[in-house]
Design a protein around this nucleic acid. Structure first.
Lengths: 314, 314
DNA sequence: TAAAACATGACAACTATTGTCATAATTAAA
DNA sequence: TTTAATTATGACAATAGTTGTCATGTTTTA
């Protein structure tokens, strides 16, 4: 076997094992101890963070986590990784902040001069713009760890009604619009609730093997349980069509007439009508809601509230 | 010099040069032609996409773009790259779709069995949720290329008033909320306008070295030129504070009283009040706008329009 | 103090790499 | 058609690198 192949095998072995003596390696790979020492020196030169302790009970220790075999990337691929990371940079907290930095650095350093310029120039012409969040989410990593261990959580949560304590089993964690959310099963009521991770003030992890039957992906595709379907029917002007096709929740359901006007005829959940009413309020006369009557009532009620809140002074 | 080092040097040389003969390599590195042939065979085995043409004027050709020296990643770093890519998967169009796929594949293949399970399991507990966009942006790559070449563009653009033709100089391209935008200088009026790339029906690239003085980053930090500052003053209930701190444009300006209520006192641009009025409409009595009067008038006006659009029928 | 570990050097045996030469195949230009 | 330029491959000796063995240190801890 070639030296390179052997080195790679040993690299993978030791970086998985973390703690070992030269004798162990010599035995598993059927090579002499002297050679093991030489190999480890080579790996150390190649950048493997390894250190040795002399004396009885000594041995070698690999510092960082498991290392992958070296991978060949093209420059275009490196650029893609850069921009993927750029698109994440507006999250104040991520479960892998330090890794993002180290990867960027490794890649950027390995780029030739010319390619570095290309990345720099691309960076000045393309961006992923999102407002920078200032809200911090210190418990994110802890929550994620608890989720992966199927632990229960006792959380102090700040909601509309103040701070309450709840015992929950988390389904997963997801990011939306720069904020982190945690759908979880409230163990007292057996209902699924949605929490914002930044609003969890503190938590206690209770380790027991409660296994949930629901998965995050499942939950995201088919959210909030109590489905109360109602029909939504809205007529749209040309401008209304333009606006609705830009709105994620409607873009698939807009039907367009040949003259550019159109309509929406779909089924929505009762729970969504507050959000939807705010949307159609904005569209004004460009969207005429015909159904459901609850939505029309809501629009009227809210309009009346607004007029009551702001009596005419002029 | 060790063989590995030499191979690396040749890898870099060859992948930068793309086209070469064995003799050239032999000369530049002072090795025999026979060895060059052997080396190129090795590189080919290592995955370098290279092919040879025999005969006079023949030679070797490296297919893909420049290759980076092999990089050692830790498993955690690989996981970070995976999730950065996951967060991008909701964009229907990206300037580097194919690279994302090839990188993911390379990384996933190089992970040990155990680590693959870890990635899979993480993937079922963490997500970046954004509504999947169905709007396609076929001209994205073309626009980006034009931007980087400082070219002018004559675009057929679909706006409120129908399809118009405009001659513009693009500043850059950015993604927001799943859609791609292009701020550009309209050459007739010298004003900066914001276009949505998916609404560009077709375009003609006019190659001339017009160099803009404004950069994308600059523009993003300090957008739309005509600043008409007005004072915004809003009183907030506890719930109002909660909602406003979740809204990117206000989260930094909310001032909180000790009892949990608070207020916003800041300067906004005249142009923003339509967006802002929709936001405060939603908050209803949880936010009482005191200034500017224009905003109050807008809220009243819109409420009246809504009431006129939906006369009471019940 | 002895045992268990790393660290390093010397050297012969072994293995891999390299250059040289030879030969073949392929292609394009003279 | 011939010739020159190119890749492709094999044989083999000279050279270079790697390995195992042995020897000698050093450090740490039971």
């Amino acid at each position: 076997m070639s030296k390179a192949k052997r080195l790679l095998d040993i690299l993978l072995f030791v970086s998985a094992k973390k703690q070992f003596t030269a004798q162990e390696i010599a035995d598993t790979f059927n090579i002499s101890v002297r050679t093991v020492h030489r190999y480890l020196l080579d790996l150390s030169d190649m950048g493997l963070p390894i250190y040795a302790e002399q004396g009885r009970n000594g041995g070698y220790t690999v510092l960082s986590s498991t290392i992958l075999p070296p991978i060949l990337f093209t420059e275009d691929e490196a650029v893609a990784i850069f921009f993927a990371f750029q698109s994440l940079q507006y999250y104040r907290d991520l479960p892998f902040n330090t890794e993002l930095k180290s990867v960027s650095q490794k890649l950027y350093n390995s780029l030739q001069n010319e390619a570095q310029k290309k990345v720099d120039s691309l960076q000045s012409y393309i961006a992923f713009w999102k407002p920078k969040r200032t809200i911090s989410t210190p418990l994110l990593s802890d929550v994620l760890e608890a989720v992966m261990n199927h632990s229960q959580l006792e959380i102090q949560y700040e909601s509309k009604s103040g701070i309450t304590t709840k015992l929950v089993h988390a389904i997963g964690v997801y990011a939306h619009d720069g904020l982190w959310y945690m759908p979880a099963i409230h163990l007292k009521t057996e209902k699924t609730l949605l929490f914002r991770v930044d609003r969890i003030h503190s938590m206690i992890v209770i380790n027991n093997g409660y296994k949930s039957s629901i998965h995050l992906q499942q939950w995201l595709e088919n959210p909030l349980e109590p489905q109360q379907p109602i029909r939504l029917y809205v007529e749209l002007t040309r401008e209304g069509v333009r606006q609705c096709t830009s709105e994620p929740i409607f873009e698939k359901t807009v039907i367009c007439h040949s003259d550019g006007t159109g309509y929406i005829d779909t089924i929505i959940d009762q729970g969504e009508i507050h959000f939807i009413s705010a949307f159609f309020y904005r569209l004004g006369q460009h969207a005429i809601v015909k159904e459901p009557p609850e939505l029309i009532q809501l629009l009227r009620k809210h309009a009346q509230d607004i007029l009551a809140t702001y009596p005419n002074e002029s």
